[in-house]
Design a protein around this nucleic acid. Structure first.
Lengths: 332, 332
DNA sequence: CAATACCTTGCAACCGGTTGCATGTCAACA
DNA sequence: TGTTGACATGCAACCGGTTGCAAGGTATTG
């Protein structure tokens, strides 16, 4: 009823304060150029009128939106929220806002989203990208990109290396007497999966163990449950899963068949997303996602700063194997 | 080296295609105003030059940013990611982008974030807001707001009602013979906590049970662990926790003292965020967050459409008590 | 064949800030 | 007292789209 005045613009502040529009602008962006008294007067008027700078207008003239995008394969996968959180917090400290989008583990959707965001953000952080290397490099020329868990030369990236921990897990299984173990693989196109599988098979070869790779449809609980038949019939006595979700799916399915862990099967997860909650607590690899999110965010800010210089930063985060209660001697 | 041309603007497309800038604009926004051939020619040129509309410029002249903000108390709390995901997906289908921010359960931070986003979005979805009612109403006059799990008259809202399920939980405990039970309360200012506590105390009164309310510092695992002493010394034999995280904290702490659930204590959680994973599986209330996120998003789009009309929509989502394995007869 | 209507396209103003340059003021210095 | 420079502020163009209005052309109608 009362205030039909909408949001005030610099023009209205300027008129009310008896100065030029440019002075109002400067009062907020470069106050050192104006006399203290003028700045104070302008700010007072602005306060009274409830002035809020229009960020579209500002973005249009400066070319800076103050936004970044954060693209993840699956928001609901418990692996990602801590990473999202830490990245967002880090961005906020630098006065940036972050768009979040879920590309549902689909390469097509990922591409669409990048295009959609291209005009709205200054840079994008891409988690576990499914896009081909050349495409990424092409995009990186147009817009600053930082990758997490994807290793493309020439693009700044942060990698969480679960390899050494998984190698340790294989050795542990071998030490317990397991001769045949399975790797329940994750999304085949991802760097993460390739790297994990490579690490595991390196050690199984080295120790002369038999490794059976069983693909899963998705890195989810349900997919874990779905591959139990195949796993059992393969004759393995222990398994390492691409992530905790798959591992837990296997555990629940085994338990529904009255097969105990680790008595009937030994299981190892990865990422410690839900492993502290499982029954029994799942032996898994530590979770470095919080750190990764923060670093990715800092990296992109760095990239925003010096877009010119050939930027080939790479940061590798090491992990730890966290032994809980799902490894034991083989059953048969 | 080669392309210094940056991103092309309508002016360049216009020149290349031999038309006015306005025609280029219309070719994308209102093609029915132009002849088919002209539209085709313009689009072809745009394609060749890799034209992407500048969204700041568009937002400036239309006043529509095509963005919404989604503010949550804690991204890493497993209760929220499914809600974030479904809201984001729903927004995307309507060509909106969503900003995500974590206000760390702080009212001050919440306020700051709303202000920061005010200029960048067309509306904000506020989850479990900590802000006082009057402040929210004031803000709602300036910018479209939809609340989730907060009941403020005059502001569109979606509420997840765990009340009836928790009442059922109390009855279940009573039926098992429990006379004194505890409610491990959540953030005291939240609607969710008040509503849950009210529901529980209504039934304990009705049945003549003793109810001990024990506050927790945060709705987290650690806070659950921290209140176990107090809970034990209060003499209760069963407890209902504000959420699964607190319930699980209690369970782990009890288990580290060699107290079994449900033999020594009966525990009920809420929200089914991690209850399927706990050991033993936690009896809890169903999770309606996915639906809530979707509805909140649809609501805000509705609000954007008809900002004028008095908007007092309210949508209540009912829940189910999911009985798992953490309720049994009282110990002593 | 003239009058009218419609369809297509261009012109120019506008959205709300930012910023290079010019102007004006005043004090310091010679 | 005239010159010089620092400082404060205004002017106007610009960022890249959108849109009301007008103009030109073609088709329709009496």
């Amino acid at each position: 009823m009362s205030s039909k005045s909408k949001v005030p613009t610099i023009a209205q502040i300027a008129e009310r304060a008896g100065v030029a529009r440019s002075s109002v602008s400067r009062a907020f962006t470069r106050p050192e150029l104006l006399s203290t008294t003028t700045v104070l007067r302008i700010k007072k008027v602005a306060e009274e009128l409830g002035y809020v700078p229009n960020s579209s207008a500002r973005a249009l003239s400066t070319g800076k939106t103050g936004n970044i995008a954060f693209l993840v394969p699956d928001v609901a996968n418990p692996y990602f929220p801590p990473m999202i959180r830490s990245a967002q917090l880090a961005a906020e400290n630098l006065d940036y806002c972050v768009f979040l989008a879920d590309f549902e583990e689909s390469r097509l959707k990922e591409e669409k989203l990048i295009e959609r965001f291209a005009g709205k953000v200054e840079g994008v952080i891409l988690i576990s990208s499914r896009m081909p290397e050349e495409r990424l490099q092409g995009l990186a020329e147009k817009i600053p990109i930082v990758l997490v868990n994807r290793d493309v030369p020439g693009i700044p990236r942060v990698l969480i290396d679960a390899g050494s921990s998984l190698k340790q897990a294989v050795r542990l299984l071998a030490h317990q007497g397991h001769q045949e173990i399975a790797y329940l693989s994750g999304p085949s196109v991802t760097w993460t999966n390739k790297q994990r599988q490579a690490a595991i098979s390196m050690v199984t070869n080295e120790l002369g163990l038999q490794l059976v790779v069983i693909p899963t449809e998705k890195p989810s609980l349900e997919s874990g449950q779905a591959v139990v038949d195949q796993m059992i019939s393969s004759g393995v006595t222990g398994a390492i899963a691409f992530n905790d979700l798959i591992a837990h799916g296997i555990m629940t399915e085994l338990s529904s068949r009255a097969l105990a862990v680790p008595d009937s099967f030994s299981i190892v997860g990865c990422d410690s997303s839900i492993s502290p909650f499982t029954n029994p607590p799942l032996t898994s690899v530590s979770n470095e996602t919080t750190e990764a999110g923060k670093i990715a965010c800092e990296m992109i800010m760095g990239v925003l700063g010096e877009m010119n210089s050939k930027n080939d930063q790479i940061k590798v985060l090491e992990t730890l194997l966290i032994e809980r209660e799902t490894i034991g001697p083989p059953c048969k």
